[in-house]
Design a binder for these strands. Structure first.
Lengths: 341, 341
DNA sequence: GTGAAAGCGCTAACAC
DNA sequence: GTGTTAGCGCTTTCAC
């Protein structure tokens, strides 16, 4: 309504400002970019004018010209278990840390959630958009192969997820297999013998955790671990856990939950079904989210260092942006013993 | 490394593709945009070629030319209590829903977290960047006035937060004052008489919740509500809550926590200090996050409809983008009675 | 239905 | 130090 009452002239672009300052557009560009040689007084005058008119150079135009956007894409592929994965606290916390790190490095963050099943072209589309300098993929979901394909032709990409021997894309993630082993070893050390794994084993990270737990069981002469599949969304998971408990009551005395969220839900259901934790059933989670400290009793879990993960993702991406080819980074998980096992 | 082995020619832009297709750039543009008149066969040929070469028009260029980016900015100002607010589950959940809604409407989401104290110009800078068509501000933090100023000259902005009589920026949010009243009324109905409010009352939303609670107490002839300030980060909050409890043990029999996260922490501390909930102390939270169902006992709380909030934010922003001037929207909170009060 | 040409706002190489 | 010029890749009149 009343936007050009305050300032006599509206400054829409660098040229307008140049006219006001009595210099050329080039000089304004240089002055505002803060680099190269510009007379100190000229620069001051231009900066003052810019401030006065609330002018800021258009980043799209600048990006187009410089072939660099200073925007990093963060994309979250949602696999079969569409709805929930994202609200998943772990991913959200990671996202928060990524935002901090990227900001700190002078990059903006473009967020995209996609359902690969609806759009097989999800990754190329994002990369090809011209809007981002590089991309961080949060979670491999069931798109491992797609990501591998893209990695062959596109360098500035780093993925949060599971590391597999010989893979071609640069990944940062916790050693899930080792984490799984730690969890199972703890359950067994606490006296559990009939173990179960709670979670969707078709998700690659979870599968690795499951496999690690199986390694440990095998090595310690414990029978096979029962897989109790669940979805990630609290509503569905609760019902599924209740059903599992009803079906296998008594056949289980140790549960390794794929995430703390699932573990917390499981704890509630166990209580509901009258199982004492850890006396009757031992329980170990994964992630060490804030909730792990707040359950009753507090959760024994396997810690992932989210902040370190975010730092690594950004660091590796920046290196790749600078032309380096970087190796994947596998972070060590850490067992946090509390009261459930 | 090996990217131009597969395809003979690299297609960098619309002109390259035009050459291949034996047409002009204009025609390719029209064909790929899927609109206006283009011969069906020509269009098919162009589309096939684009697919074959994995070509996608550059959005920056398109945006520059059309003066529209199809990107919506989402900015989270972090007030004094810098570190935590963002990891705050409520904001993160809202963000997830926003991402869904915006994607659904064909917009991308550019995320920015800012510390206004370090950069007083945070909002103008984002808006003036030329990278976004509109902006959604998540939380007013302590920047109410700054937002008001900007609203005068910039239409496509919608804010999540608290509604204040006569404000000029378009806001979507829960009726915090009413929510506070519901919480206090519940505490009192449950038998509490010496009430306390847990949380940072300098945050405007929290202040409104506090005020609402005071209204209820006054109306029901209950003494003033004690304010127990805390930060939002779990580590600091836990310590602060413990200190408050130590200082005012016995002087309180009802606590209204500003968020469920705080309430859950408080529950843990209460247990640690030997207070039975709800027998000795009643407790009500705010938000109805998933954690509210999982505490022991489960939390009585005031529900905010996050999904509805996200939908409204996007809907109003799109209307403003289309030139309308929209009114603010205040959503009704809902008391959810569980076991803590 | 398609081509030619102008230009979105900016930057950088090249003059001077 | 600063002006001039030529695009970055795209869309969109205006012709034909």
């Amino acid at each position: 309504m009343n936007d050009d009452k305050t300032t006599r002239t509206t400054v829409r672009n660098i040229t307008d400002l140049a006219r006001l300052a009595g210099v050329s557009a080039g000089t304004v560009s240089r002055a505002l970019a803060g680099k190269s040689l510009v007379n100190a007084k000229t620069r001051e005058r231009i900066e003052a004018l810019a401030r006065e008119h609330g002018f800021r150079p258009n980043q799209m135009a600048s990006g187009l010209r410089r072939q660099k956007t200073s925007v990093v894409g963060v994309i979250i592929p949602l696999g079969h278990d569409v709805r929930q994965q994202i609200s998943d606290s772990f991913f959200m916390t990671l996202l928060g840390h990524l935002a901090d790190e990227l900001t700190h490095e002078g990059y903006d963050l473009m967020l995209r959630r996609v359902v690969p099943d609806n759009d097989p072209d999800w990754l190329d589309r994002f990369i090809g958009s011209g809007m981002i300098d590089g991309v961080i993929v949060i979670g491999q979901s069931d798109q491992f192969d797609r990501i591998e394909d893209v990695a062959d032709g596109y360098n500035p990409m780093v993925v949060w997820g599971n590391h597999t021997e010989g893979q071609r894309h640069c990944v940062v993630g916790t050693d899930n297999r080792l984490g799984g082993r730690l969890a199972a070893e703890r359950l067994i050390a606490a006296g559990a013998r009939r173990l179960a794994f709670l979670g969707d084993t078709t998700a690659i990270e979870f599968a690795a955790r499951f496999a690690g737990a199986q390694d440990a069981a095998r090595r310690l002469g414990i029978g096979p671990i029962m897989a109790l599949p669940t979805h990630l969304s609290p509503e569905r998971a609760s019902a599924e856990i209740a059903a599992h408990l009803a079906a296998h009551a008594g056949a289980i005395d140790g549960i390794f939950a794929a995430t703390d969220t699932l573990a917390a839900l499981c704890l509630t259901e166990l209580r509901g079904h009258g199982f004492a934790v850890p006396e009757a059933v031992k329980l170990v989670g994964f992630d060490d989210l804030p909730i792990a400290r707040q359950t009753v009793p507090p959760l024994t879990t396997v810690r992932q260092d989210i902040a370190a993960g975010a730092r690594a993702l950004v660091d590796l991406l920046l290196r790749r942006l600078a032309g380096e080819t970087t190796e994947s980074l596998v972070l060590p998980p850490e067992l946090v013993v509390r009261k459930t096992a």
